[in-house]
């Protein structure tokens, strides 16, 4: 599957995830993509290696208190080893996403947003960034919109096209502020995406604009 992914997470976002400074919604995007993409996983682990190297550079240690080793040994004395991570759960969604939904596709509580498009807001930390699942019926389009800041959309099922580019499972479309875009789902299959934004979207046509406060996007 991963060798087919054409559109990846950008380096600055992978690095920010490695450094642990992304808003939770964007971390969810990265974790979900990396679960499907070995290319980005390898890059991410190199950024982690950079973090490890910076940690290990000798100049900056701060002395621990005298009894700290004894205190730590007391803490681990008799502690049970961490259980092995849960093995891969099968399903449409990778595990990080299933963790937020409490299940797979059938656990999603969709809400219609018009023209057959449905969405489900995911419970990430409150703030400027938000994450949601989008359901776009086969052949339908998400209204043309620009937005403040950054929007990332990743295909989980089906595929969509935007202009002359096509996005299939695992592909991420990264749209910046001045980018007008209109994803159109392939005619053959309904399309499900994970979308994260770091500010409220600006819709161009009147109706979606009026709907914006209710959509929380």
């Amino acid at each position: 599957m991963s060798e087919e992914i054409q559109h990846h997470i950008s380096d600055d976002i992978l690095m920010a995830y490695s450094a642990g400074v992304l808003p939770e919604a964007f971390s969810l995007m990265v974790a979900t993509h990396v679960s499907m993409c070995d290319v980005c996983r390898a890059k991410l682990e190199s950024y982690d290696a950079l973090g490890g190297a910076v940690l290990d550079v000798p100049s900056d240690a701060v002395a621990m208190s005298d009894d700290s080793l004894a205190a730590t040994l007391a803490m681990i004395n008799g502690a049970a080893p961490e259980p092995k991570p849960v093995p891969h759960r099968s399903g449409v969604f990778p595990r990080p996403l299933q963790d937020y939904l409490g299940g797979d596709l059938d656990a999603v509580k969709w809400r219609p947003v018009g023209m057959g498009v449905k969405q489900a807001i995911l419970p990430t930390e409150k703030g400027a960034a938000s994450a949601r699942l989008l359901f776009i019926p086969a052949g339908a389009a998400v209204p043309d919109h620009g937005h403040n800041g950054l929007e990332m959309t990743m295909v989980l099922k089906g595929a969509f096209s935007d202009g002359d580019e096509r996005f299939a499972r695992g592909d991420v479309e990264i749209a910046t502020e001045d980018h007008q875009h209109m994803p159109v789902a392939d005619i053959s299959e309904d399309c499900i995406c994970l979308a994260v934004t770091d500010a409220r979207l600006k819709f161009n046509s009147l109706l979606p604009k009026l709907a914006q406060p209710f959509l929380r996007i």
Partner: peptide, 24 residues
């Protein structure tokens, strides 16, 4: 590197008080 990732995750719990989704 491994210790860095453990410390980073601990820092997110501690200072940001938000979840950190991890890849499968």
């Amino acid at each position: 590197t491994w210790i860095f990732t453990i410390a980073r995750n601990r820092r997110i719990d501690l200072l940001r008080k938000s979840r950190r989704p991890e890849p499968e």
